[in-house]
Design a protein around this nucleic acid. Structure first.
Length: 450
RNA sequence: GGCGCGGUAGCCAAGUGGCAAGGCAAUGGUCUGCAAAGCCAUUAUCGGCGGUUCGAUUCCGCCUCGCGCCUCCA
Protein backbone atom coordinates (compact mmCIF):
# COMPACT_ATOMS: atom_id res chain seq x y z
CA UNK A 1 0.00 0.00 0.00
CA UNK A 2 1.53 3.24 -1.05
CA UNK A 3 0.29 6.40 0.55
CA UNK A 4 0.93 10.02 -0.11
CA UNK A 5 -0.28 12.79 2.07
CA UNK A 6 -0.12 16.49 2.04
CA UNK A 7 0.48 18.53 5.06
CA UNK A 8 -0.25 21.79 6.63
CA UNK A 9 2.22 23.58 8.78
CA UNK A 10 -0.36 24.34 11.37
CA UNK A 11 -2.50 21.38 12.04
CA UNK A 12 -1.96 17.71 12.48
CA UNK A 13 -5.49 16.54 13.03
CA UNK A 14 -5.98 15.33 9.52
CA UNK A 15 -3.09 13.00 10.09
CA UNK A 16 -4.57 11.58 13.25
CA UNK A 17 -7.80 10.94 11.51
CA UNK A 18 -6.51 9.16 8.47
CA UNK A 19 -2.87 8.31 7.96
CA UNK A 20 -2.04 8.83 11.60
CA UNK A 21 -4.02 5.81 12.55
CA UNK A 22 -0.80 3.89 12.54
CA UNK A 23 -1.89 1.41 9.96
CA UNK A 24 1.71 0.61 9.33
CA UNK A 25 2.14 -0.77 12.81
CA UNK A 26 -1.15 -2.55 12.68
CA UNK A 27 -0.52 -4.38 9.45
CA UNK A 28 -3.02 -7.03 10.23
CA UNK A 29 -2.74 -8.54 6.81
CA UNK A 30 0.74 -9.92 6.30
CA UNK A 31 0.82 -9.08 2.62
CA UNK A 32 -0.15 -5.50 3.27
CA UNK A 33 2.95 -3.36 3.21
CA UNK A 34 2.54 0.27 4.03
CA UNK A 35 4.84 2.72 2.39
CA UNK A 36 3.97 6.25 3.34
CA UNK A 37 5.40 9.43 1.94
CA UNK A 38 4.56 12.76 3.49
CA UNK A 39 5.11 15.94 1.64
CA UNK A 40 6.07 19.18 3.32
CA UNK A 41 5.05 22.14 1.29
CA UNK A 42 7.82 24.52 2.11
CA UNK A 43 7.32 26.78 -0.85
CA UNK A 44 4.39 28.87 -1.90
CA UNK A 45 3.77 32.53 -2.57
CA UNK A 46 3.26 33.36 1.03
CA UNK A 47 6.33 31.57 2.29
CA UNK A 48 8.45 33.17 -0.37
CA UNK A 49 7.10 36.60 0.44
CA UNK A 50 7.48 36.19 4.19
CA UNK A 51 10.95 34.77 3.89
CA UNK A 52 11.93 37.67 1.67
CA UNK A 53 10.44 40.16 4.11
CA UNK A 54 12.35 38.55 6.96
CA UNK A 55 15.50 38.49 4.91
CA UNK A 56 15.81 34.76 5.41
CA UNK A 57 16.29 31.82 3.13
CA UNK A 58 13.28 29.64 2.59
CA UNK A 59 14.92 26.80 4.46
CA UNK A 60 15.66 28.94 7.49
CA UNK A 61 12.29 30.57 7.45
CA UNK A 62 10.34 27.31 7.34
CA UNK A 63 12.57 25.45 9.80
CA UNK A 64 10.65 26.40 12.89
CA UNK A 65 7.30 25.53 11.32
CA UNK A 66 8.59 22.19 10.22
CA UNK A 67 9.91 21.50 13.69
CA UNK A 68 6.63 22.53 15.29
CA UNK A 69 4.76 20.26 12.95
CA UNK A 70 6.92 17.29 13.84
CA UNK A 71 6.61 18.02 17.52
CA UNK A 72 2.85 18.06 17.16
CA UNK A 73 2.97 14.77 15.34
CA UNK A 74 5.03 13.26 18.12
CA UNK A 75 2.71 14.61 20.75
CA UNK A 76 -0.18 12.96 18.99
CA UNK A 77 1.72 9.69 18.51
CA UNK A 78 1.57 9.97 14.78
CA UNK A 79 4.00 7.52 13.30
CA UNK A 80 6.72 8.84 11.10
CA UNK A 81 6.18 8.04 7.45
CA UNK A 82 8.79 6.13 5.47
CA UNK A 83 9.75 9.39 3.83
CA UNK A 84 8.98 12.96 4.60
CA UNK A 85 10.11 15.21 1.86
CA UNK A 86 10.34 18.89 1.12
CA UNK A 87 9.05 20.51 -1.99
CA UNK A 88 12.15 22.65 -2.27
CA UNK A 89 14.29 19.53 -2.59
CA UNK A 90 12.36 18.45 -5.66
CA UNK A 91 12.36 21.41 -8.00
CA UNK A 92 14.15 19.34 -10.60
CA UNK A 93 11.46 16.64 -10.57
CA UNK A 94 8.81 19.29 -10.95
CA UNK A 95 10.60 20.82 -13.90
CA UNK A 96 10.87 17.42 -15.55
CA UNK A 97 7.18 16.80 -15.09
CA UNK A 98 6.37 20.17 -16.57
CA UNK A 99 8.56 19.37 -19.55
CA UNK A 100 6.68 16.14 -19.97
CA UNK A 101 3.39 18.00 -19.97
CA UNK A 102 4.84 20.51 -22.36
CA UNK A 103 5.65 17.80 -24.88
CA UNK A 104 2.05 16.69 -24.79
CA UNK A 105 0.75 20.24 -25.27
CA UNK A 106 -0.83 20.44 -21.86
CA UNK A 107 0.93 23.70 -21.20
CA UNK A 108 1.20 27.19 -22.58
CA UNK A 109 3.32 30.14 -21.55
CA UNK A 110 2.20 33.53 -20.34
CA UNK A 111 4.40 36.36 -19.13
CA UNK A 112 7.16 34.05 -17.97
CA UNK A 113 4.80 31.63 -16.28
CA UNK A 114 3.61 28.26 -17.52
CA UNK A 115 -0.01 27.25 -17.32
CA UNK A 116 -1.89 24.00 -17.47
CA UNK A 117 -4.50 23.87 -20.20
CA UNK A 118 -7.51 22.21 -18.62
CA UNK A 119 -9.33 22.07 -21.94
CA UNK A 120 -6.79 19.41 -22.88
CA UNK A 121 -7.92 17.16 -20.03
CA UNK A 122 -11.59 16.27 -20.54
CA UNK A 123 -11.80 14.30 -17.31
CA UNK A 124 -11.09 17.40 -15.28
CA UNK A 125 -13.48 17.62 -12.36
CA UNK A 126 -14.04 13.91 -11.93
CA UNK A 127 -12.91 13.88 -8.35
CA UNK A 128 -14.90 16.80 -7.03
CA UNK A 129 -17.65 16.47 -9.62
CA UNK A 130 -17.21 20.06 -10.56
CA UNK A 131 -19.00 21.01 -13.71
CA UNK A 132 -16.84 23.42 -15.62
CA UNK A 133 -19.42 24.27 -18.22
CA UNK A 134 -21.12 26.64 -15.84
CA UNK A 135 -18.03 28.60 -15.14
CA UNK A 136 -17.75 31.54 -17.45
CA UNK A 137 -14.48 33.14 -18.29
CA UNK A 138 -14.45 36.60 -16.86
CA UNK A 139 -16.65 35.75 -13.91
CA UNK A 140 -13.79 35.90 -11.53
CA UNK A 141 -10.74 37.11 -13.25
CA UNK A 142 -10.37 40.47 -11.59
CA UNK A 143 -7.82 39.38 -8.99
CA UNK A 144 -5.88 37.24 -11.34
CA UNK A 145 -2.53 38.67 -12.06
CA UNK A 146 -1.71 36.46 -14.96
CA UNK A 147 -3.02 36.01 -18.42
CA UNK A 148 -4.70 32.71 -18.91
CA UNK A 149 -6.67 31.09 -21.68
CA UNK A 150 -9.32 29.99 -19.24
CA UNK A 151 -10.06 30.99 -15.68
CA UNK A 152 -9.74 27.44 -14.49
CA UNK A 153 -6.26 27.00 -15.86
CA UNK A 154 -3.67 27.04 -13.16
CA UNK A 155 0.00 27.85 -12.95
CA UNK A 156 2.50 25.02 -13.14
CA UNK A 157 5.40 27.41 -12.98
CA UNK A 158 5.36 31.01 -11.92
CA UNK A 159 7.51 33.81 -13.22
CA UNK A 160 9.90 35.27 -10.66
CA UNK A 161 8.93 38.36 -8.79
CA UNK A 162 11.47 41.09 -8.20
CA UNK A 163 13.35 40.67 -4.98
CA UNK A 164 11.99 37.23 -4.26
CA UNK A 165 13.65 33.88 -4.39
CA UNK A 166 13.53 31.97 -7.65
CA UNK A 167 15.08 28.89 -9.21
CA UNK A 168 17.02 28.93 -12.47
CA UNK A 169 15.83 25.92 -14.44
CA UNK A 170 15.46 24.35 -17.86
CA UNK A 171 12.04 25.94 -18.21
CA UNK A 172 13.31 29.32 -17.14
CA UNK A 173 13.60 31.17 -13.88
CA UNK A 174 10.76 31.10 -11.39
CA UNK A 175 9.09 29.03 -8.75
CA UNK A 176 6.72 26.09 -8.81
CA UNK A 177 2.98 26.41 -8.73
CA UNK A 178 1.15 25.01 -5.78
CA UNK A 179 0.02 21.72 -7.26
CA UNK A 180 2.96 20.46 -9.25
CA UNK A 181 5.04 19.48 -6.25
CA UNK A 182 2.61 16.81 -5.13
CA UNK A 183 2.42 15.14 -8.50
CA UNK A 184 6.16 15.23 -9.02
CA UNK A 185 7.10 14.02 -5.58
CA UNK A 186 4.43 11.35 -5.30
CA UNK A 187 5.51 9.90 -8.62
CA UNK A 188 9.15 9.90 -7.69
CA UNK A 189 8.66 7.94 -4.49
CA UNK A 190 5.51 5.97 -5.13
CA UNK A 191 5.32 5.42 -8.86
CA UNK A 192 2.87 6.77 -11.35
CA UNK A 193 -0.13 5.24 -9.64
CA UNK A 194 -0.51 5.46 -5.89
CA UNK A 195 -2.87 3.45 -3.79
CA UNK A 196 -3.95 6.04 -1.30
CA UNK A 197 -3.74 9.79 -1.19
CA UNK A 198 -4.95 11.56 1.91
CA UNK A 199 -5.71 15.13 2.72
CA UNK A 200 -8.29 17.50 4.10
CA UNK A 201 -11.62 17.64 2.29
CA UNK A 202 -11.01 21.27 1.44
CA UNK A 203 -8.12 20.24 -0.75
CA UNK A 204 -10.24 18.05 -2.98
CA UNK A 205 -10.87 21.05 -5.12
CA UNK A 206 -8.93 22.51 -6.70
CA UNK A 207 -5.69 21.06 -5.35
CA UNK A 208 -6.27 17.35 -5.79
CA UNK A 209 -8.22 17.87 -8.95
CA UNK A 210 -5.23 19.67 -10.36
CA UNK A 211 -2.87 16.95 -9.19
CA UNK A 212 -4.93 14.47 -11.15
CA UNK A 213 -4.89 16.66 -14.22
CA UNK A 214 -1.11 17.06 -14.09
CA UNK A 215 -0.29 13.48 -13.28
CA UNK A 216 -2.70 11.72 -15.57
CA UNK A 217 -2.07 14.21 -18.30
CA UNK A 218 1.62 13.38 -18.19
CA UNK A 219 1.45 9.63 -17.67
CA UNK A 220 -1.87 8.64 -19.15
CA UNK A 221 -2.27 6.39 -16.11
CA UNK A 222 -4.57 6.51 -13.13
CA UNK A 223 -2.94 8.69 -10.49
CA UNK A 224 -4.65 7.61 -7.29
CA UNK A 225 -6.76 4.56 -6.51
CA UNK A 226 -8.30 5.80 -3.27
CA UNK A 227 -8.64 9.29 -1.95
CA UNK A 228 -9.11 9.61 1.79
CA UNK A 229 -10.45 13.03 2.49
CA UNK A 230 -10.77 13.88 6.14
CA UNK A 231 -13.63 16.12 7.17
CA UNK A 232 -12.84 19.24 9.08
CA UNK A 233 -13.36 20.11 12.66
CA UNK A 234 -15.95 22.30 14.16
CA UNK A 235 -15.07 23.84 17.47
CA UNK A 236 -17.94 24.01 19.93
CA UNK A 237 -20.26 23.66 16.97
CA UNK A 238 -18.72 26.52 15.05
CA UNK A 239 -16.23 26.87 12.32
CA UNK A 240 -12.75 27.15 13.69
CA UNK A 241 -11.17 30.47 13.04
CA UNK A 242 -8.78 32.82 14.68
CA UNK A 243 -11.19 35.71 14.53
CA UNK A 244 -13.79 33.76 16.45
CA UNK A 245 -11.28 32.99 19.13
CA UNK A 246 -11.91 29.27 18.91
CA UNK A 247 -8.66 28.37 17.30
CA UNK A 248 -6.40 26.27 19.48
CA UNK A 249 -2.94 24.93 19.00
CA UNK A 250 -1.87 21.71 20.62
CA UNK A 251 0.35 23.75 22.86
CA UNK A 252 -2.68 25.71 24.08
CA UNK A 253 -4.53 22.55 24.90
CA UNK A 254 -1.65 20.90 26.70
CA UNK A 255 -1.06 24.07 28.66
CA UNK A 256 -4.65 23.85 29.85
CA UNK A 257 -3.86 20.43 31.24
CA UNK A 258 -5.35 18.19 28.57
CA UNK A 259 -3.35 15.09 27.85
CA UNK A 260 -2.08 14.08 24.44
CA UNK A 261 -3.86 10.75 24.78
CA UNK A 262 -7.19 12.47 25.40
CA UNK A 263 -6.74 14.62 22.34
CA UNK A 264 -5.73 11.69 20.22
CA UNK A 265 -8.69 9.65 21.40
CA UNK A 266 -11.07 12.54 20.75
CA UNK A 267 -9.78 12.95 17.21
CA UNK A 268 -9.49 9.28 16.39
CA UNK A 269 -12.76 8.08 17.87
CA UNK A 270 -14.86 9.82 15.26
CA UNK A 271 -14.51 8.30 11.80
CA UNK A 272 -12.49 10.52 9.54
CA UNK A 273 -15.26 11.18 7.05
CA UNK A 274 -17.44 12.66 9.73
CA UNK A 275 -17.26 16.25 10.71
CA UNK A 276 -15.93 16.20 14.22
CA UNK A 277 -17.29 18.68 16.67
CA UNK A 278 -14.37 19.41 18.92
CA UNK A 279 -15.44 20.55 22.37
CA UNK A 280 -13.78 20.76 25.73
CA UNK A 281 -16.54 18.63 27.09
CA UNK A 282 -15.70 16.10 24.42
CA UNK A 283 -12.04 16.20 25.37
CA UNK A 284 -13.02 15.47 28.92
CA UNK A 285 -15.13 12.57 27.76
CA UNK A 286 -12.24 11.25 25.73
CA UNK A 287 -9.98 11.48 28.76
CA UNK A 288 -12.48 9.45 30.77
CA UNK A 289 -12.69 6.84 28.06
CA UNK A 290 -8.93 6.51 27.96
CA UNK A 291 -8.97 6.24 31.74
CA UNK A 292 -11.37 3.32 31.53
CA UNK A 293 -9.11 1.49 29.14
CA UNK A 294 -6.04 2.15 31.21
CA UNK A 295 -7.76 1.03 34.39
CA UNK A 296 -8.68 -2.18 32.68
CA UNK A 297 -5.17 -2.83 31.39
CA UNK A 298 -3.83 -2.09 34.83
CA UNK A 299 -6.30 -4.41 36.46
CA UNK A 300 -5.13 -7.27 34.28
CA UNK A 301 -1.47 -6.58 34.77
CA UNK A 302 -1.66 -6.28 38.52
CA UNK A 303 -4.34 -8.81 39.21
CA UNK A 304 -3.69 -12.29 40.52
CA UNK A 305 -6.16 -14.71 39.12
CA UNK A 306 -6.62 -18.44 39.57
CA UNK A 307 -4.51 -20.49 37.21
CA UNK A 308 -5.92 -21.95 34.06
CA UNK A 309 -8.24 -20.45 31.50
CA UNK A 310 -11.90 -19.63 31.66
CA UNK A 311 -13.98 -21.61 29.25
CA UNK A 312 -15.05 -19.51 26.31
CA UNK A 313 -12.77 -16.58 27.15
CA UNK A 314 -10.28 -17.30 24.37
CA UNK A 315 -13.11 -17.38 21.86
CA UNK A 316 -14.52 -14.16 23.28
CA UNK A 317 -11.19 -12.42 22.87
CA UNK A 318 -10.82 -13.73 19.34
CA UNK A 319 -14.26 -12.35 18.55
CA UNK A 320 -13.25 -8.93 19.85
CA UNK A 321 -10.15 -8.98 17.68
CA UNK A 322 -12.24 -9.93 14.69
CA UNK A 323 -14.73 -7.16 15.27
CA UNK A 324 -12.01 -4.65 15.83
CA UNK A 325 -10.49 -5.68 12.56
CA UNK A 326 -13.82 -5.52 10.79
CA UNK A 327 -14.37 -2.01 12.08
CA UNK A 328 -11.08 -0.75 10.74
CA UNK A 329 -11.54 -2.61 7.51
CA UNK A 330 -14.82 -0.79 7.08
CA UNK A 331 -13.24 2.40 5.75
CA UNK A 332 -11.50 3.02 9.05
CA UNK A 333 -14.67 2.98 11.08
CA UNK A 334 -12.97 3.78 14.33
CA UNK A 335 -16.22 4.13 16.26
CA UNK A 336 -17.08 0.57 15.35
CA UNK A 337 -13.60 -0.68 16.20
CA UNK A 338 -13.77 1.02 19.58
CA UNK A 339 -17.08 -0.61 20.37
CA UNK A 340 -15.42 -3.99 19.94
CA UNK A 341 -12.79 -3.02 22.47
CA UNK A 342 -15.19 -1.64 25.03
CA UNK A 343 -17.43 -4.65 24.71
CA UNK A 344 -14.56 -6.90 25.61
CA UNK A 345 -13.49 -4.63 28.45
CA UNK A 346 -16.92 -4.81 29.97
CA UNK A 347 -17.25 -8.55 29.61
CA UNK A 348 -13.80 -9.24 30.94
CA UNK A 349 -14.47 -6.95 33.89
CA UNK A 350 -17.59 -8.94 34.63
CA UNK A 351 -15.59 -12.14 34.48
CA UNK A 352 -13.04 -10.71 36.85
CA UNK A 353 -15.73 -9.49 39.24
CA UNK A 354 -17.38 -12.88 39.25
CA UNK A 355 -14.12 -14.71 39.74
CA UNK A 356 -14.29 -16.64 36.51
CA UNK A 357 -11.38 -14.89 34.89
CA UNK A 358 -8.13 -16.88 35.01
CA UNK A 359 -4.48 -16.06 34.88
CA UNK A 360 -4.18 -17.95 31.63
CA UNK A 361 -6.59 -15.49 30.00
CA UNK A 362 -4.41 -12.51 30.74
CA UNK A 363 -1.88 -12.80 27.90
CA UNK A 364 -4.51 -13.03 25.18
CA UNK A 365 -6.39 -9.98 26.44
CA UNK A 366 -3.21 -7.99 26.81
CA UNK A 367 -2.16 -9.01 23.34
CA UNK A 368 -5.45 -7.73 22.01
CA UNK A 369 -4.99 -4.47 23.86
CA UNK A 370 -1.52 -4.17 22.40
CA UNK A 371 -2.87 -4.64 18.92
CA UNK A 372 -5.52 -2.07 19.64
CA UNK A 373 -2.94 0.34 20.94
CA UNK A 374 -0.79 -0.03 17.87
CA UNK A 375 -3.55 1.79 16.07
CA UNK A 376 -5.02 4.05 18.71
CA UNK A 377 -1.98 4.62 20.89
CA UNK A 378 -3.80 5.72 24.00
CA UNK A 379 -3.55 2.89 26.52
CA UNK A 380 0.14 3.15 27.12
CA UNK A 381 0.55 6.11 29.42
CA UNK A 382 3.37 8.24 28.12
CA UNK A 383 1.56 11.55 28.36
CA UNK A 384 3.80 13.23 30.87
CA UNK A 385 6.90 11.92 29.24
CA UNK A 386 5.85 13.32 25.88
CA UNK A 387 4.99 16.72 27.23
CA UNK A 388 8.30 16.85 29.02
CA UNK A 389 10.46 15.83 26.07
CA UNK A 390 8.70 18.18 23.72
CA UNK A 391 8.83 21.02 26.18
CA UNK A 392 5.13 21.65 25.98
CA UNK A 393 3.30 23.25 28.83
CA UNK A 394 1.18 21.20 31.15
CA UNK A 395 3.81 18.69 32.16
CA UNK A 396 3.32 17.66 35.75
CA UNK A 397 5.19 19.35 38.49
CA UNK A 398 3.62 17.02 41.03
CA UNK A 399 5.34 14.80 43.56
CA UNK A 400 7.91 12.29 42.44
CA UNK A 401 7.51 8.55 42.64
CA UNK A 402 9.57 8.15 45.79
CA UNK A 403 7.60 10.72 47.67
CA UNK A 404 4.36 9.14 46.59
CA UNK A 405 5.50 5.68 47.59
CA UNK A 406 6.55 7.01 50.96
CA UNK A 407 3.20 8.71 51.57
CA UNK A 408 1.30 5.67 50.41
CA UNK A 409 3.26 3.50 52.83
CA UNK A 410 2.56 5.97 55.58
CA UNK A 411 -1.12 5.83 54.79
CA UNK A 412 -1.05 2.06 54.77
CA UNK A 413 0.34 1.82 58.25
CA UNK A 414 -2.21 4.36 59.45
CA UNK A 415 -4.88 2.26 57.86
CA UNK A 416 -3.63 -0.85 59.57
CA UNK A 417 -3.93 0.94 62.87
CA UNK A 418 -7.44 1.90 61.79
CA UNK A 419 -6.39 5.51 61.99
CA UNK A 420 -8.64 6.45 59.12
CA UNK A 421 -8.44 10.14 59.81
CA UNK A 422 -4.73 10.14 59.02
CA UNK A 423 -5.15 7.75 56.10
CA UNK A 424 -7.83 9.91 54.54
CA UNK A 425 -5.84 13.06 55.11
CA UNK A 426 -2.89 11.63 53.21
CA UNK A 427 -5.12 10.44 50.43
CA UNK A 428 -6.76 13.83 50.21
CA UNK A 429 -3.42 15.61 50.12
CA UNK A 430 -2.19 13.42 47.32
CA UNK A 431 -5.46 13.83 45.47
CA UNK A 432 -5.02 17.58 45.62
CA UNK A 433 -1.64 17.08 44.01
CA UNK A 434 -3.08 14.95 41.24
CA UNK A 435 -2.44 11.49 42.64
CA UNK A 436 -5.28 9.03 42.99
CA UNK A 437 -4.97 6.22 45.50
CA UNK A 438 -7.06 3.13 45.17
CA UNK A 439 -7.44 0.30 47.62
CA UNK A 440 -8.13 -3.10 46.14
CA UNK A 441 -10.19 -5.79 47.80
CA UNK A 442 -7.20 -7.93 48.52
CA UNK A 443 -5.67 -5.12 50.56
CA UNK A 444 -3.19 -4.00 47.91
CA UNK A 445 -2.97 -0.35 47.03
CA UNK A 446 -2.28 1.31 43.72
CA UNK A 447 -1.83 4.90 42.78
CA UNK A 448 -1.93 6.76 39.53
CA UNK A 449 -1.53 10.27 38.27
CA UNK A 450 -4.71 11.95 37.26
C1' G B 1 -26.82 30.02 -6.96
C1' G B 2 -23.84 25.10 -8.15
C1' C B 3 -21.55 20.78 -5.84
C1' G B 4 -20.72 17.89 -1.35
C1' C B 5 -21.25 16.22 3.89
C1' G B 6 -24.30 15.88 8.13
C1' G B 7 -28.84 16.35 11.76
C1' U B 8 -29.67 9.24 16.13
C1' A B 9 -30.69 9.69 24.15
C1' G B 10 -27.99 15.48 28.53
C1' C B 11 -23.07 15.11 25.43
C1' C B 12 -19.91 12.23 21.64
C1' A B 13 -21.27 8.51 18.24
C1' A B 14 -22.14 3.31 15.26
C1' G B 15 -25.70 1.15 12.46
C1' U B 16 -29.67 -1.62 9.76
C1' G B 17 -35.93 -2.49 5.49
C1' G B 18 -38.13 -6.25 10.85
C1' C B 19 -37.36 -5.61 18.57
C1' A B 20 -31.69 1.26 17.91
C1' A B 21 -23.73 -0.65 18.97
C1' G B 22 -20.22 1.66 22.06
C1' G B 23 -18.24 5.75 25.14
C1' C B 24 -19.01 10.00 28.55
C1' A B 25 -22.31 12.21 32.09
C1' A B 26 -26.52 11.79 35.64
C1' U B 27 -29.60 9.11 39.26
C1' G B 28 -30.40 4.71 42.21
C1' G B 29 -28.12 0.13 43.78
C1' U B 30 -23.85 -3.33 44.74
C1' C B 31 -18.92 -3.38 46.75
C1' U B 32 -15.85 -0.46 50.41
C1' G B 33 -13.91 1.74 57.21
C1' C B 34 -14.80 5.92 53.67
C1' A B 35 -13.44 6.37 48.68
C1' A B 36 -11.82 4.90 43.84
C1' A B 37 -12.17 1.15 40.25
C1' G B 38 -15.61 -2.60 38.55
C1' C B 39 -20.59 -4.42 38.09
C1' C B 40 -26.26 -3.89 37.87
C1' A B 41 -30.58 -0.77 36.82
C1' U B 42 -32.89 3.71 34.66
C1' U B 43 -32.62 7.42 30.34
C1' A B 44 -34.20 7.60 22.21
C1' U B 45 -41.58 7.63 19.07
C1' C B 46 -33.44 8.01 15.02
C1' G B 47 -34.75 17.04 12.32
C1' G B 48 -40.14 17.82 9.95
C1' C B 49 -43.98 16.37 6.27
C1' G B 50 -45.46 13.10 2.53
C1' G B 51 -44.60 8.49 -0.53
C1' U B 52 -43.03 3.16 -1.57
C1' U B 53 -43.59 -1.34 1.64
C1' C B 54 -46.82 -6.32 5.46
C1' G B 55 -43.22 -3.23 8.01
C1' A B 56 -38.63 2.71 7.36
C1' U B 57 -34.46 5.57 11.62
C1' U B 58 -32.72 2.82 7.23
C1' C B 59 -35.37 3.59 0.22
C1' C B 60 -37.74 8.03 -2.68
C1' G B 61 -39.59 13.28 -2.82
C1' C B 62 -40.21 17.97 -0.54
C1' C B 63 -38.93 21.12 3.57
C1' U B 64 -35.83 22.76 7.49
C1' C B 65 -31.28 23.43 10.23
C1' G B 66 -25.73 23.02 10.57
C1' C B 67 -21.02 22.70 8.02
C1' G B 68 -17.67 22.60 3.82
C1' C B 69 -15.97 23.64 -1.28
C1' C B 70 -16.74 26.79 -5.61
C1' U B 71 -11.41 32.72 -3.27
C1' C B 72 -3.54 28.74 -3.20
C1' C B 73 -7.40 28.08 4.02
C1' A B 74 -6.09 21.40 7.25
Amino acid sequence: MRISSTKSGRSAHVHVRADGLRLRAYRKLPHLCVYHVMNLTDVDDRIIAHAAAAGMSIRDYTAKFVQAFFDDCKALSIEAPEHWIRATDHIEEMVKLILRLQQKSFTYPGEGSIYYRIAKFPEYGKLSKIDLTGIQAGARVDNDRYEKESVRDFALWKAPKPGEHFWETAIGPGRPGWHIECSAMAMKYLGETLDIHTGGIDLAFPHHENEIAQSEGATGKLFVRYWLHAEHLLVEGEKMSKSQGNFFTLRDLFAKGYKPSALRFALASVPYRKQLNFTFDGLQQAASSVERLRNFADRLQRGKFPTGQQEGMAARIAKAAEEFDAGLSDDLNTARALAAVFDLVREANIAVDKGGFRQGDVPAVLEFLTTFDKVFAVVEDNDSEKLRTLGYGGAESGPGDEEIDRLVAERNSAKKKRDFATADRIRKELADRGIIIEDAKDGSVRWKRK
